[in-house]
Design a protein around this nucleic acid. Structure first.
Lengths: 153, 153
DNA sequence: CTCATTGGTGGGTAATTGTGGGTAATTGTG
DNA sequence: CACAATTACCCACAATTACCCACCAATGAG
C-alpha cells in the first residue's frame, strides 16, 4: 500500500506526476482511475487522492447514511460533493481541478504523502508549517487513541 | 536481531552503506526492502529504519485507524506519510531521501544504532550531544514504565 | 611481516523519472 | 454551427537514481 513523502511540482496546467513506483499498481488496481476530494479537517488543508476501488467502498458505506440526519448529510455534501474523478494520463500525471488547487492553496511545489489506502496532496509550504508545530497525539478528550498505544514500533 | 553502534558516512549522493553483517539477513528477511521514517520524538531527531516485514506489521495495525479521528490521522500523516521505501542496492547501500536527511540534520558522518527490530540513524554530532545529557528513565507522569522495572539486567 | 580478502567510500555512466511546453482533440458556450 | 476554453497527447530536456568499477583501509591467514 501507499506510504512515504514525495516532493513534486504542479505544472502550469495544473498537472501533477504520480511517482513512477505507484503507476503500475494504480493501473492494475483500478485502470488508473482515481478520485480527488477535499479534506474535511480544517487543520489539514490538503487534498485526498483515492484509487477508484477504495473510493467506491467508502461510497457504498455512505449509501446507508440516513437522509434526515443533518450532520451526516453535511458530511456527505462536503466529502462526496467535492470528489472529482481523475485519470492517469499516458505520462503518469493527473490533472487537479482548479477549485481543488485553490482550496488547498497549491503552489508550484507539492508534497504527496502515502497514507496506506490513499494519498494526501499538500502545498509544500503548508506542509512544512504543519510539520513545525508540535505533535499532539491526544484526542479531543485528551486521551491517546487506543490503537496508537499498542503499536509495535 | 539488531544491536550495536556503527560509524558510517553519507556520500555526496545521499547514500549510506548498511553494515555488511546485516546485509544477508535483510536480503533473506525482506529481499533487501527497507522503510525509513522520521522519529516522532522531537527530543530525538533521528531516522528510523525498518525491515519491510517489520514495518508491515505496524502498517497493518494502522489500517484499522478511523478516518475521522483527527489525532490518529495526525499520527498516521507523520509516521506513514514520512515512511519512504528504500532498497539495498547491489553494493549494500541505501539512498536516504533528501527531506529525511534534512529533517535529521544528517551531515557526512553518521551513527547507525541497532534497536532490536529497527535501526536508528543519527547525525554523528547530534548523537554525541544527545549522549552528553543525563538520562531520565521516568515517564511524563514521573513513573518508571512498568516493563522496564522487570528487566533481568 | 606480507599478502589476500573483505568492507566501506567515491565517482563515472547509463537508464529512468519528472518537468515544461507545443499541438491536436474535445468540450462547453453563445 | 463557430468559437473559446480546456484537456489529452506527444516530444524534448533536465534531474535523479541505479549500476558498475576502482580505490583504500582494516583484518586475518600463512
Amino acid at each position: 500500500m501507499f506510504r512515504g513523502e514525495y516532493t513534486l511540482s504542479l505544472d502550469a496546467k495544473g498537472r501533477m506526476a504520480v511517482p513512477a513506483k505507484y503507476r503500475k499498481v494504480l493501473q492494475e488496481e483500478c485502470g488508473g482511475q482515481l478520485v480527488v476530494t477535499k479534506n474535511f479537517d480544517p487543520d489539514a488543508r490538503c487534498l485526498l487522492l483515492y484509487p477508484l476501488a477504495v473510493w467506491q467502498e467508502i461510497e457504498n458505506k455512505l449509501t446507508e447514511v440516513p437522509g434526515l440526519n443533518k450532520a451526516a448529510q453535511r458530511f456527505k455534501r462536503f466529502f462526496v460533493g467535492n470528489a472529482n474523478d481523475c485519470e492517469l494520463d499516458k505520462s503518469g500525471r493527473i490533472l487537479l481541478p482548479a477549485t481543488h488547487r485553490e482550496f488547498s492553496s497549491l503552489g508550484k511545489r507539492l508534497r504527496l504523502l502515502g497514507m496506506v489506502n490513499k494519498f494526501e496532496i499538500w502545498d509544500e509550504d503548508l506542509w512544512c508549517a504543519q510539520q513545525q508545530g508540535g505533535f499532539d497525539l491526544t484526542d479531543e478528550d485528551g486521551e491517546l487513541p487506543g490503537i496508537l498505544s499498542q503499536l509495535p514500533m
